[in-house]
Simulated scan of single mutants.
Amino acid sequence: MSESIVGKKTFEFAIQIVNFYKKFSIEKKEYILSKQILRSETSVGANVREALNAQSKMDFIHKLSISQKECDETIYWLELLFATEYISKEEFESLKGQAQEILKIIRSIIITTKNKTHNS
């Protein structure tokens, strides 16, 4: 899974969010909401990476479940930034679309792993 789609996508998205945060904090001088999205999104990839070193299937599912929650939280912060007019519709749709794609992949992996665990 180290070369997995979800690992690659979460890392690439984290890079975008880090760059977004740097730009956002300089241009908009907004630090609270942007720091929240930085924390939640970088946690997604970190927990995916931790899942690679899981000690069991349940640990794997647990780490991915944390990633799932953090990804959904990232979407919340994006929605809030958009609703308060800190980000444009184009930025919002692009970032939210990427986050939703990652969320779907993570959910799918969790479901598949749970099904394999129960059928074993």
Results as ranks from 00 to 15, higher is better:
67 S>V: 00
96 K>V: 09
55 Q>L: 13
33 L>K: 03
2 S>L: 12
8 K>W: 06
45 G>A: 01
40 S>T: 04
45 G>W: 06
67 S>N: 04
89 K>W: 11
24 F>N: 08
85 E>Y: 11
27 E>T: 00
97 G>Q: 07
80 L>I: 14
37 I>C: 11
111 I>F: 04
50 E>V: 02
42 T>E: 14
45 G>I: 08
105 I>W: 03
54 A>K: 08
69 K>T: 12
48 V>H: 06
17 I>H: 09
8 K>S: 09
68 Q>L: 11
98 Q>M: 12
87 I>A: 02
76 Y>V: 03
52 L>R: 14
35 K>Y: 10
22 K>W: 11
118 H>I: 04
34 S>Y: 03
110 I>L: 02
7 G>Q: 06
19 N>H: 15
68 Q>G: 08
35 K>A: 15
64 L>G: 06
33 L>N: 01
105 I>T: 00
4 S>Y: 11
112 T>L: 04
6 V>W: 05
78 L>D: 06
46 A>C: 12
108 S>L: 04
110 I>Q: 02
43 S>T: 05
119 N>E: 13
12 E>M: 05
57 K>E: 14
65 S>T: 03
80 L>A: 10
49 R>I: 12
6 V>L: 09
116 K>D: 02
108 S>T: 07
114 K>V: 07
95 L>F: 08
68 Q>F: 05
7 G>R: 01
120 S>W: 01
104 K>W: 03
43 S>D: 02
40 S>Y: 04
34 S>F: 03
18 V>P: 04
88 S>I: 12
20 F>W: 12
92 F>A: 02
103 L>Y: 13
22 K>S: 13
115 N>V: 01
32 I>W: 05
79 E>V: 01
1 M>I: 11
112 T>Q: 03
88 S>R: 12
